[in-house]
Design a protein around this nucleic acid. Structure first.
Length: 522
RNA sequence: GCCAGCGUAGCUCAGCGGUAGAGCAGGGGACUCAUAAGCCCUUGGUCGGAGGUUCGAUUCCUCCCGCUGGCACCA
């Protein structure tokens, strides 16, 4: 079976409700996934939840629930969130699922057996109240501790460590030899910068059961559970393995959880993540995989964070953006459009309600919406909705846009891709004024010319529907529906000029993005 | 502090050796198919500051000022 295009988001930690940042990551991943499906790739898109750890355990306790019951409840909320965003994920992983836990344990066994995991004591300052060790940073200058820590005592604890340090030089060389491994470039430079300037410590991967029960048991030591990153990162690998991916199963050998006859997924093509967890994905994860003898993912794509009105979003100040509220008011596609159009993948974004309104009005309503509306309207008015003979006056513009948008999508430059689409929209709006079909319609001798103009307009609208499909799939389908075209706007090959056939009858125009800012005239 | 990057029209940014461009916002105009949308024209800048290299610098170099990001795991 040929290798599928395998793309993931980070898995979200279930100690709170989903917010704009989560929505953004899922949407940009969805755009790339949909684009590749359109290009003809068989895509596997994975998202999901990270459900273990102390904070989940505590949150569950606070609500009087067992951890699993608490996670189940939140998982429903998160699944609904993903669905509300129109995300086309193929699977949804939860780290409490047995299929995941088995693979984590198999991986731990393998690394333990080959000597990459060892037990060692750690001594440090421990706060019993916070159930955590403290570092010098948390200590005041006079050596005292903040009262929130309660009594702080010196404690020695044994734990399991993953031998990362020996792979440091290998990783530096790998990243230098693989320029596309971390994107954008400046993030890659950051990773290389600190890899060259610090010595990696081995990674502590366990917690004693007495202190943390909500985790995956360490298979070779029943007194311990696996801790955070080793568990969370493995989700990308555990799902393919559990589905019987040949490469993943081969890595696990006899402990593989399934017959190696499943879809070919590993290695992942893209891990989409936030910049805050770059280190884990660009350092720990490659080393874990290298140690396990697994091929590395092709690319780590690190996106920025969203601000609101130039400031960090925080619940305490109340300057948060609730994706579901925006979607309820403006529609899903307006939301998807804004977050992708506002910034390229990499830098931080700044959400402003005014900017959102402006893009909605000028780009979606007045630009795209009005073009589709006036085009279909004129075809109805002047030709009873019947498509005239093919004509290619706007074809070169459409072809150029298709090429540019595809290039941008393959380079993950989603903002530039949308700009390219809007170039075509603007071209078509200019074309209406240049050719003035409404004047041609008044002169019977210009009937042939009017046919040509109308064909170019409605066909451009159809091509636009295909171009827009990865970004705003609902709108794409609505354009196809108004044109009464039955084929699939999600297939990229339908960008080819000439899809509308002469004699076909289109439907009635319905505004795609109604303006909301106009006060009715008295 | 160290490393990297940025500072260009009111706003968001492009340009990166021959004295500046786009989109939006602002101003004017012609039209009417359309969600009073669209189209055309147009006002805005001594390209952060000071030196240097060069026939010539926004574009290269140095310094200064301002801003941003990174400097891990924090068992």
């Amino acid at each position: 079976m040929s290798k599928r295009f395998y793309i993931t988001t980070a898995i979200d930690y279930t100690n709170g409700a989903p917010h704009l940042g989560h929505a953004y990551e899922k949407i940009i991943t969805d755009v790339i996934a949909r684009a590749h499906r359109g290009f003809g790739d068989s895509v596997f898109f994975l998202t999901g939840l990270d459900e273990h750890g102390q904070k989940v355990q505590q949150a569950a306790q606070a609500e009087g629930l067992q951890p699993q019951a608490y996670c189940d409840k939140l998982a429903e909320q998160w699944r609904a969130f993903v669905q509300a965003l129109g995300v086309s994920n193929d699977d949804f992983v939860r780290t409490t699922q047995p299929r995941h836990q088995k693979v984590v344990q198999a991986l731990l066994e393998k690394l333990h057996a080959q000597g990459d995991i060892y037990k060692a004591p750690y001594e440090g300052w421990y706060s019993a109240r916070q159930e955590t060790f403290l570092t010098d940073k948390e200590r005041r200058e006079d050596g005292s501790w903040d009262s929130s820590y309660g009594e702080v005592t010196r404690l020695v604890e044994e734990n399991w460590y993953f031998r990362m340090s020996e792979y440091q030089q290998w990783l530096i060389e790998y990243i230098e030899a693989t320029p596309t491994f971390v994107y954008p470039d400046y993030r890659r430079n950051e990773v290389l910068g600190f890899l060259k300037n610090v010595t990696l410590d081995d990674l502590c991967i366990s917690r004693p059961l007495s202190r943390l029960s909500w985790g995956i048991p360490i298979p070779f030591d029943p007194d311990y559970v696996n801790y955070v990153w080793f568990d969370a990162l493995t989700n990308y690998f555990s799902v393919p393995a559990s589905l019987g991916d040949p490469v993943a199963c081969d890595v696990l050998g006899a402990s593989a959880p399934a017959k190696a006859t499943g879809p070919s997924l590993w290695p992942a093509d893209i891990h989409v993540i936030g910049k805050d967890i770059l280190r884990f994905h660009a350092v720990y994860w490659p080393i874990m995989l290298k140690a396990a003898g697994a091929p590395l993912p092709k690319q780590i794509l690190a996106h920025g964070w969203w601000m609101k009105d130039g400031e960090k979003m925080s619940k305490s100040t109340g300057n948060v953006v609730d994706p579901l509220a925006v979607i309820a008011e403006w529609g899903l596609d307006a939301f998807r459009y804004y977050v992708v159009r506002e910034l390229e993948i990499g830098p931080d974004g700044n959400w402003t309600d005014e900017g959102f309104r402006q893009r909605y009005t000028s780009e979606l309503a007045n630009g795209l919406g009005n073009l589709v509306n006036r085009s279909i309207s004129m075809l109805n008015k002047y030709r009873n909705g019947v498509v005239p003979n093919c004509h290619s006056e706007l074809e070169p513009d459409a072809v150029r846009a298709v090429q540019e948008v595809e290039n941008c999508l393959r380079q993950r430059r989603l903002q530039a891709a949308l700009s390219g689409i809007w170039d075509l929209i603007n071209k078509a709006n200019q074309y209406v004024d240049r050719t003035a079909p409404f004047k041609l319609a008044k002169d019977p001798e210009q009937s042939g010319r009017l046919d040509q103009v109308l064909y170019n307009l409605v066909e451009t609208c159809r091509v636009l529907a295909v171009l827009l499909n990865p970004f705003i799939p609902n709108t794409s389908e609505r354009i196809y529906a108004q044109l009464k075209v039955c084929s699939e706007p999600e297939l990229w090959r339908h960008t080819a000029w000439g899809g509308l056939l002469p004699g076909h009858t289109v439907g009635a125009p319905i505004p795609l993005f109604p303006r909301k800012d106009l006060v009715p005239k008295v």
